[in-house]
Nucleic acid binder design. Structure first.
Ligand SMILES: [Mn+2]
Ligand SMILES: [Mn+2]
Ligand SMILES: [Mn+2]
Ligand SMILES: [Mn+2]
Lengths: 222, 222
DNA sequence: AAAATAAATTAGGTAAGCCTAATTATGTAT
DNA sequence: ATACATAATTAGGCTTACCTAATTTATTTT
């Protein structure tokens, strides 16, 4: 069982997948360089080699896209990352803002049996601790209908299902504000001037959330 | 938090530790080359760099020894390896002959909090699935008094506590023979000619074990 | 002790994955 | 259409961790 994909390749594939997911279309050299914290010249070099391996398609000076082969590898890394995050939170007692760095390492461990057993051990979770969907072993996941709370109207009753921003400072802000995944939010009013939202959480506490916050809270209508 | 020790350095340190443990004294270039499956010339190169970093002491043409610094790193890798093996067997349902390769990867994941939480989660195990001792966070472990079954005499009643040989074929032989860690073995007789042992397992089954087998079964007198 | 053998080192290279500096291509403003 | 700014690529290097072939050192055998 030899290693077909290097650590660097796995990280490039994952970065390309995520940049494509957020911005659509082709991924630019500079976006990749920024995301991977690597010099743009190094990226140009590397993507040429990846294109030769048919992991991505590359149009000179225009950017890259994942091939089906590359997309499946990216999804398997993302699957591993998210399953490990679930394990770290539910079995080892880590907080949702403490697991990403560790999962960044664990996601590269190679063993199909391991990841299958882990999935089973966790009870086949559909989402990770941040509400992100976990693809199945074949790279498929059920897209859900969550959207930013910002897009909701006064009077909407929704469930908090995920975050659009994964920074520790945002996750910690939510923890301090006692807003947890699965909470029910009622939009009581929206301030026209600054788009801040007055919400009621789980029919109990009232909270004022800034536009910056509601933009990054993903919710589903109840 | 930067990475002080590379993957290759970790593997060299672990190999040196294990070779020293088995053979005592200094570890030769060729022994390391064989153990790590790399060319001897590469080893010579690498150990010079490790010596410059004070991870080992190196006497040209005579061999290497771990410094205290290197020993502690080696022990921390071994600790991680064995804790992960315990987890794979007790939580994920792997067999004792299926965990080593996966643990070889997991042992390099860097996070003190992770390994302490894992240790806690597992209930602070003292031994791994092969009976090997798990060092504590400071690199200490309680040496036990196990010895090869070969060194026992007829009439001895012992407990099977570990294996001196970790190959999958030996582990699988024991599984097929229904001999498990913790089993009680009674030495009924020893054949003078070939040193084969007639043993009674858990006061039930009788088995004939070859010298090659009893040499590699570690036991404690009851 | 000399010769033969085995082990270790040195010398010179390679591939992966990065870098900086220089050059070229692309997109925007005038 | 030209000039300017930004993005991308090319050229030339570096480090890590390997390699093979040649040489030197250590250990055995005769
Ligand atoms: Mn994450
Ligand atoms: Mn996540
Ligand atoms: Mn092992
Ligand atoms: Mn073990």
């Amino acid at each position: 069982m030899k290693k077909a994909t290097s650590l660097a390749e796995e990280n490039y594939l994952k970065a390309i997948y995520k940049l494509h997911e957020r911005n659509g279309a082709m991924v630019s050299t500079s976006a990749l360089a920024e995301s991977l914290q690597v010099n743009a010249a190094s990226v140009t070099d590397f993507i040429k080699k990846m294109a030769a391996k048919k992991l991505i398609s590359y149009e000179k000076s225009r950017g890259v896209m994942l091939t089906e082969k590359g997309r499946l590898i990216a999804l398997s890394i993302i699957r591993k990352h998210r399953l490990w995050e679930v394990w770290l939170v539910t079995n080892l007692g880590f907080k949702w803002d403490e697991v990403h760095e560790i999962a960044e390492q664990l996601e590269h461990v190679i063993s199909d049996e391991l990841i299958e057993q882990l999935d089973k051990h966790l009870g086949y979770p559909k989402t990770d601790p941040h509400g992100d969907l976990i693809p199945d072993a074949k790279g498929r996941f059920i897209k859900n209908s969550s959207k930013p709370l910002l897009d909701c109207a006064a009077g909407d009753r929704v469930k908090f299902t995920g975050v659009a921003e994964h920074s520790n400072s945002f996750l910690q802000y939510l923890t301090r504000s006692n807003i947890k995944l699965g909470d029910e939010l009622l939009v009581e009013s929206i301030e026209e001037f600054d788009k801040s939202f007055q919400v009621k959480i789980n029919n109990k506490e009232r909270k004022l959330l800034s536009k910056e916050v509601v933009k990054n809270l993903l919710v589903m209508l109840l």
